[in-house]
Design a protein around this nucleic acid. Structure first.
Length: 504
RNA sequence: GGUCCCAUCGUCUAGAGGCCCAGGACGGCGGGCUCUCAAUCCGCUAACACGGGUUCGAAUCCCGUUGGGACCGCCA
């Protein structure tokens, strides 16, 4: 029985990479009469949020990927949310301790930080030094009695070669000597990815692990875990990555990565899904426009090519246009538009905001147009507040971008609070900052109130427009950006988590 | 820096030793159609990273070089 899964983490907006992996997993399952499972990997207590989990469900449903087992619908191996399975991981970690294939590590975070620093300085870079690997039972007992916090680490062999058999890439070899002892259970007694992922894949009887290429280097660790438990290996299939135009891994720093962005920017789910099916893949008949059923009907995992694919908006737009033209009558296109952003809820909100700013009814549509387009025309003058010069603008926009990514509750008050922080960082009157923002968001001088508008636009469209404005104002060099970020993050020691979302 | 992965037009790709002085699609350019624009149709543009092998024959196999990427967290 073929059983595959995607295992996203609810730590941000639902990522197109998740849908990409979902598509190939689903197609593989369907074409083999197997099952497609959705598992939520929310073991990072500090970054996981319920609203992000909901975002994943909604986004996957929107794009048309239906799962057979998952947190919301249950299944024979429930629960499918890792935060509800922590006992299972603790038990399994305990079992490894008994078997002697894992050990308790009492090293403090500060010792590890020092170690890392020293390794960077000496350019030795070998990871954890195995300090606690051979503690005697007495020492361990004594440490536990003193309530010293500890983690559980996997005993990775000191020598030998791990051979991965990847369906697409053949045999890949890693020397165990280059892999340090991985943490399996954190000191908060939550599992790390490695443990939870392997345990769940085994317990949920996953037959094929189809995931992003980024996981290739950690596969030896996973294989070693399977061995430590005495379990059979699944088949590994590492898919190439979705890329930014510059060839790096698709990231929201450089590109819209959120499925919600594409929805809000007016892309159709069937077009997006179709486009994803073109990434590193071509159907045997070379057809470029197809629906999910067609994709599944002749799906062949061995046709996947290995080079990463640049996620290119130009071709996506062309495809989307074809869907609009070829798959809709004017009547159902109107319905699609209504359900998109012309809802009563959004329109009445916009009317409320526009009422004081209109002289004729006709003013309405012209002035709220910015709420309904992916990109707006931007003239540079709109971005420059009175008595400021153009070269002052880009860094401010850059800090606004940093701020957007830290907002977890998307509402006007929260946005305002974050914008005020930017103003105080630059020691600017808030009016100057909002002036830039207003231009960047609306592309106009008259429009509804800024923070309300941003609320309606949503974080993804806002981020996109800030990037557009950054470019329009001349941009910021790589080096300068790095300096700025450092200054920004150290402004009061509370650095926020960086942008990572994995293609699971 | 170390380890691993990858390498065909600007982009997405076809190609599994002769069918390839490399095919399709997007884009770009030119043109037809048209009240504008778009759509549509026609044409053009543009690639096997480099160097060695193996072979009668290599985009395809092997080695090396170069280039790109990923990973090296009590994140996933």
């Amino acid at each position: 029985m073929v059983r595959v899964r995607i295992a996203p983490s609810p730590t941000g907006s639902p990522h197109v990479g998740t849908a990409y992996m979902g598509l190939f997993n689903l197609a593989f399952a369907r074409s083999h009469g197997g099952r497609f499972i959705l598992r939520i990997e929310d073991t990072d207590q500090t970054r996981s949020r319920p609203q992000y989990e909901m975002g994943i469900f909604n986004a996957l449903r929107w794009i048309g990927l239906a799962w057979d087992e998952g947190p919301d619908i249950g299944g024979p191996h429930a629960p499918y949310r890792q935060s509800e399975r922590t006992d299972i991981y603790r038990q399994h970690a305990g079992k490894l301790l008994e078997l002697g294939t894992a050990y308790r590590c009492f090293c403090s975070e500060s010792r590890l930080a020092e170690l890392r620093e020293r390794q960077i300085r000496d350019k030795s870079g070998a990871g954890y030094d195995g300090c606690c690997r051979n503690l005697s039972d007495d020492q361990v007992r004594a440490n536990i009695d003193q309530h010293m916090p500890y983690v559980i680490r996997l005993k990775v062999p000191r020598e030998g070669t791990c051979v991965i058999n990847d369906r697409l890439r053949g045999e890949i070899r890693y020397e165990y000597a280059g892999i340090d002892d991985q943490i399996l259970l954190k000191s908060d007694s939550f599992p790390t990815y490695h443990l939870a992922n392997v345990v769940d894949d085994h317990l949920m009887e996953i037959s094929h692990v189809i995931r992003g290429e980024e996981w290739l280097p950690s596969t030896p660790k996973h294989i070693q875990l399977y061995r430590a438990f005495g379990w059979d290996l699944p088949e590994f299939i590492h898919l190439p990555l979705l890329l930014n135009p510059d060839g790096s891994k698709l990231s929201k720093r450089k590109n819209p990565t959120s499925i919600e962005y594409y929805r809000d920017a007016g892309f159709l789910p069937e077009a997006l899904l179709n486009y994803l099916g073109l990434m590193s893949y071509s159907r045997p008949n070379q057809e470029e426009k197809f629906d999910l059923d067609a994709f599944i009907s002749d799906f062949d995992v061995d046709r996947i090519s290995l080079g990463g694919s640049i996620f290119d908006l130009t071709k996506l737009k062309w495809l989307n246009g074809r869907y609009i033209r070829e798959n809709h009558t004017p009547e159902d296109l109107w319905n699609t538009i209504k359900n998109w952003r012309c809802t009563d809820r959004l329109m009445s909100e916009a009317v409320r905001m526009m009422q004081p700013r209109m002289e004729t009814i006709g003013d309405y549509f012209g002035k709220i147009g910015f709420l309904f387009s992916a990109d707006i025309d931007l003239s540079q003058e709109l971005l420059i507040p009175k008595k400021r010069t153009i070269d002052e603008i880009p860094p401010v926009i850059q800090t606004l971008i940093y701020q957007i990514d830290t907002i977890t509750e998307w509402n006007a008050m929260e946005i305002e609070r974050k914008v005020k922080e930017v103003a105080s960082f630059w020691e600017w009157p808030i009016r100057d900052v909002t002036s830039i923002l207003f231009g960047a968001m609306t592309g106009a001088r008259v429009a509804p109130p800024l923070f309300d508008s941003m609320t309606l636009l949503g974080p993804d469209l806002v981020r996109r427009r800030l990037h557009t404005a950054l470019g329009a104002s001349g941009g910021i060099g790589k080096k300068k950006e790095a300096e700025l970020e450092k200054k920004w993050l150290s402004r009061d020691k509370k650095a926020d988590a960086p942008d990572t979302q994995s293609m699971v």
